[in-house]
Design a protein around this nucleic acid. Structure first.
Lengths: 244, 244
DNA sequence: ACCTGAACACCGTTCAAGT
DNA sequence: ACCTGAACACCGTTCAAGT
């Protein structure tokens, strides 16, 4: 009792508690509204107390990303490389969907923490174990890019929620100015343009692009592709197009 | 003379001059240091004067992105779809290299301006004209994603400049903790680990991934791919892997 | 009607003064 | 030696007071 009285009215702060509180706050109110001062207030401490556990806001963000990456499932043990990569990336995607702020923050990280490097090393190892050369694995990791974290910045999405339907009067204007976009939107929604906002199945789009890449990776591996061959003018497959 | 005296010591401000100054400042000193107040000072006006021409800082950023997109070459007229897409995306990449802040800003844009929509519409039209179905074009645009602006957030790069070499003492530690990363880094630099910082040929990596995607797009088009076939469980090509 | 200085409600972080 | 209140040097934007 006397022991606890001296420690104040809360459990003593540590780095983990700071990071967990930061993640929870970002999940609830968004990353834009997360400030050191507000986080300190929520934890019942003075702002400067946080700087005992994180050197700066940048390091706080690094730590938050680490916490999120820690939620990604480990690679499934018995599976082949393709299943292992696919499952892990889709697991990462589920994690990122729980923390909508995280993709934006990951994109701004400039320091790779050991957690980030560990994840990338594990992913790299999966390709190498799957019979990919070190050369090809290198390029394949680049091509996978941020998709390895389970996201791609989407060009069409309005953040979340879809928002209100566009006024039907604007349709003619849209169709005139952006005929091709309207054409593919019509195809995607089977003509139901009120669904054009939330119309895209993001999960499908993600898997479509992922599988396209995995197919390409597999094909290059089976072909014994190497970057030495045509490093100068073309990359994967020159494949001259017909017509003009 | 009397006419000019009333207008003050500078040409009258307009939206275009504001945007050009903002782009120039971001090019020189980085996007982080671009504030409404500093921009106003540089233009010799009071901060609030900017709000006559842009409604908010967000709209300023939208306008800056528009200005950058305006620098991208128009599609080459006579070429086939693949050349047209490839050239345009590589042109976008050159533009983005001139404005290193732009990729980061594009990623945070939530409103699509008419300039952004116009570019996407033009790109969409290139696929449609190339014999892609509206259905396939839709998914292909998603798969292309941010690469259509000529960038991918890179996982390995330290911002720009490479930085100082890591101390050689850290190598053993690296090799122990991240053996796979070190393996592909060795392959990429042919064993010259001092080149590991600036070692990646970003242009090659970009074209590698782009061509991988274009190959995949072409293959699906030639096959008459449609999303109706197997929308439920798999995307592009299920292709069961051998072994386990 | 137009323009703008001052003010508001914030930031991340430094630092000197307290215990 | 440890902790922290006040201060510093900023933000984007509102708004009332000036012309």
């Amino acid at each position: 009792m006397a022991q606890r009285a001296g420690a104040g009215r809360r459990a003593p702060l540590n780095r983990d508690r700071v990071l967990r509180a930061a993640v929870a706050r970002a999940d609830e109110t968004g990353i834009e509204s997360l400030s050191m001062r507000k986080l300190a207030k929520e934890l019942g401490v003075v702002p400067m107390a946080l700087y005992k556990h994180v050197a700066s806001k940048e390091e706080l963000l690094d730590g938050m990303v680490d916490a999120v990456i820690g939620e990604i499932d480990p690679p499934v043990p018995g599976a082949g490389w393709r299943t292992a990569v696919r499952q892990r990336v889709l697991s990462a995607r589920q994690v990122l969907l729980r923390h909508p702020w995280a993709s934006r923050v990951i994109e701004t990280r400039t320091n790779r923490t050991s957690v980030v490097l560990g994840y990338m090393d594990s992913m790299t190892g999966t390709f190498l174990a799957g019979g990919f050369s070190a050369d090809l694995t290198h390029h394949v990791m680049h091509a996978l890019g941020n998709r390895m974290w389970g996201f791609t910045r989407e060009l069409f999405d309005d953040g979340q929620g879809g928002g209100p339907d566009p006024p039907p009067a604007a349709f003619d204007e849209m169709a005139k100015r952006y005929p091709h976009i309207v054409e593919i939107a019509m195809a995607a929604t089977r003509g139901d343009l009120s669904a054009v906002g939330p119309g895209c199945d993001e999960q499908f789009e993600f898997e479509f692009a992922l599988d396209l890449l995995l197919d390409g990776f597999e094909r290059l591996r089976d072909r014994g592709w190497t970057s030495r061959r045509d490093h100068d003018h073309a990359a994967a497959v020159p494949a001259p197009e017909q017509g003009a």
